[in-house]
């Protein structure tokens, strides 16, 4: 069973929430915790391809997202409803992730002992 669930609800730039949430995921993994990531709300924008955060002198989160496999983080979920509310589809995303329905969200939350919400 996965131990650590990190929920991303904020866009990749505009605030430091996204970067600081990924930092926590990577540190958690480095501490030997099996980490699961869930992107929902505006957090789904973190998964879009072709981001150019350098245009506003930001680093964005894509480079850190690409490092996830090195930390053995392979459980990445995206909220189906959040995507469709924003007119997005899974094939526009830059990262391998599993779509998750509203009904399954509850199960996902219940199956983790530690949940961090950003």
């Amino acid at each position: 069973m996965s131990e650590l669930l990190i929920i991303f609800r904020k866009p990749p730039i505009g605030t430091s929430w996204a970067r600081e949430a990924i930092d926590l995921a990577l540190v958690g993994a480095a501490f030997g915790q099996q980490a699961t990531l869930l992107f929902m709300g505006d957090g789904v924008y973190q998964l879009l391809s072709n981001q150019q955060p350098d245009q506003v002198e930001q680093k964005g989160t894509q480079a850190m997202m690409k490092a996830l496999p090195m930390y053995d983080i392979d459980q990445v979920f995206v909220c189906e409803k959040s995507l469709s509310e924003r007119g997005l589809r899974a094939n526009l995303l830059d990262f391998e992730c599993q779509s998750i329905s509203q009904a399954s969200l509850q199960k996902l939350l219940n199956s983790h002992r530690q949940v961090f919400n950003f």
Binding site: L24, V27, G28, A30, F116
Partner: peptide, 8 residues
């Protein structure tokens, strides 16, 4: 890590 440690 201190935050992860607290959660564990």
């Amino acid at each position: 890590g201190q935050l992860i440690d607290a959660s564990i």
